[in-house]
Design a protein around this nucleic acid. Structure first.
Lengths: 226, 226, 226, 226
DNA sequence: TATGAATGAGGCTTCATTCAT
DNA sequence: AATGAATGAAGCCTCATTCAT
């Protein structure tokens, strides 16, 4: 899209070929995982040939890692668009939760690739230098929301922002990753349009109740009713 | 229950062989998934030969399904040991959450197999007739806890027990399934002994805060502080 | 069927078991040939177990040969029922042809087993002592019909009865054996009920025309029209 | 017809490799049938490796179908060389019969492959789009011979050319296909050089007698001598 | 006489990768 | 920069047959 004019005489520019391969690879790795994906299948859906995959990415693992990094980079861009700095703490937190929920829901490929990574004990994520150092931004912003809420006296003390972030991730991720098994084993009711809206709202509610100041906070720790 | 006594004189022990194969297969499928597991690798770790795997389970898929069902059956048995009926509602709910958390934590094989199933869109879980009809018991018990709590006035109205169950599952599952990626991308701090204890406690707290009656419930829905 | 009374106390008599196995084997070998038939498949359709097949017949080849011989014996019995001795020569010959045609048509299993034998270069038929010495009877009877016709002046001289027999066999056999390929490559029109009746009638007609005295016999040999 | 000249510089010769594989496969499938043939055996007799069979033909069935089609194509080419249009009807018909007889006799591989196909109920012939639509030419030519003979008054009316074709095929095919069993069960006398010449001549004679006008045609239908 | 368990050899097929041009 | 041809290693599975009781 950028400098195509300069290269017009070439049939395809190198970047275009790479991007083409990557986008096909992403779909394949997301669908079948590293072991399950087939180089042949990827090559066939590509505009170029199998040889080019090896030319540009070395081997299957190289292509896989490139795919992984491309996905995380895409996600990073999305996160930059979250605009909550002007909101009141509760509203900001609610929007934050909704954003995380939606982000996962709208990126099933990301989820599936991460699922696969976890099956491989995150072997390739660890190898990548890009991925590890990424998500500081988002957690920082969450910290600031919590701090603001506490300063305003609407959020209680003793909250670990990272735990809240973990909890959000858990639910947002699980909502996509385990939909097949949960539907099968328990109930599909949360996965139609209404069900998803309900889940999203309750997730917000649940986290707000977790951070909010409540008179009876003495009851909270021991789990008894006085 | 069986006529094993009659067969004791046989050198062969079909059930033993099958169990042996299954336990090896469970580990292999958990580690590598359906596609990644190697029949040869399973056979080698077995007391018997590769041929016997085919004799008893037909093919790789047959073995995989048998493994799946064995795992879910094992889990079912564990659930029968949860004893919370005599407790007060809050205590019962707390114990329930802790049980779910521990159950997942202590069965990483189960988690990994389910992860794999989800990558396969739960294809084989759906095929199995055993798995679908299982988990009524546990959700029923949760329903009763909630009802009791509401009757006693300690839990608020408008709670869907299934959502609480979903939320528990999400966190308990994610805690095991996504540990590698979360550790890598964010922080490993929740995954040592103390971190796990913290996570478990906050999970309980979070859910109790979600169900508990709170004076300011009018604030809950719109997310403002008026 | 014979001495079942004597053996009533036994669950199954040896002959019954053997006959049971043989009848199943015949169907399997007819359908799939020696290489294609599966001992397991045969055993499953049998009232007894796989082990019994080996007990009674030694191995797969042994069972195959036994099947072969049983089939030829059955055919031999059928031939004994052909009753044409009182007929006039033309009528007798016509009946003979029809008999051969029907006999093949009604024994597709025989045909398929012989097809398979021919693929194996009749290896097992040659081994069998029973089969080789069988079909003298039928060819003798054909010889006698021809001789009678010649004596009565209705059949011409210079006919080899064995050729006529060969020609009948060829058509009667081909009608069953090559029905699938002929239907596919040329036309299925000869294989419905009417088509078969037509084929049968023309076969008779053709052979009668071949043996019958004809004024223009001088034309016959060189294939010219004078 | 092809651009082989352009590729002459390549070490690889895809068409040559394919043809090599096909010719070996033809012999193997002819000898052992689809089930009996061994990919390993084929590969060994080939200039290339087993892997290349899969590269070019996909799987065993793919190779089998390719073999089937190659054989039928070869036969088609042979048929194009039959030159009988200038002959008188009887002579043309005689030559036609001889051609069919010789064609079968000289292509035992074809016969054996078709035998095998018939054992498989012509399953793969039906799949092939090439084979079904082929043999119109030859039957058309036979029709025209008959018509010419009838127009000239040397052939009688009421003849179905397709039946004659069927009859020729039956005998020409059976002569090759059932030689082993016929030799074993009846007599080998038709299968040496003289025997084959005799069979061929009588086949011609028999068919000419079938089509020729004969004074006594009133006798033909009821089979009596009055 | 009867049976379920066991087996070794060999079959078909797939895969990521490299070669030659 | 690009491509069709080629490959070895390894995977899954099937078969007739035998063993132990």
């Amino acid at each position: 899209m950028k400098d195509q004019q300069l290269r017009k005489s070439w049939k395809q520019d190198a970047d275009g070929v790479k991007r083409d391969i990557l986008s096909v690879a992403m779909a394949e790795f997301a669908e079948s995982g590293l072991a399950g994906a087939r180089i042949d299948a990827i090559a066939e859906k590509t505009k170029t040939s199998k040889r080019m995959i090896y030319y540009y990415f070395g081997d299957k693992e190289g292509l896989y890692i490139a795919t992984l990094e491309a996905i995380f980079e895409r996600v990073l861009h999305e996160e930059a668009e979250l605009d909550i700095d002007g909101m009141m703490p509760e509203q900001a937190l609610a929007s934050f939760v909704e954003f995380v929920f939606d982000q996962h829901r709208n990126n099933p490929d990301l989820i599936r690739v991460v699922m696969n990574e976890n099956i491989l004990h995150a072997k390739y994520m660890q190898k990548s230098e890009i991925i590890g150092s990424q998500n500081v931004t988002l957690t920082r912003r969450l910290e600031r929301i919590i701090e603001r809420g506490q300063a305003q006296g609407v959020f209680r003390e003793g909250i670990d922002p990272m735990f809240i972030y973990w909890q959000m991730q858990a639910q947002a991720f699980y909502n996509v990753s385990n939909r097949p098994s949960f539907s099968t084993k328990f109930s599909p009711k949360f996965f139609d349009k209404e069900g998803q809206a309900y889940l999203r709202a309750e997730m917000v509610d649940s986290i707000l109740r977790y951070v909010r100041v409540c008179d009876d906070d003495d009851r909270a720790r021991d789990g008894t009713t006085h």
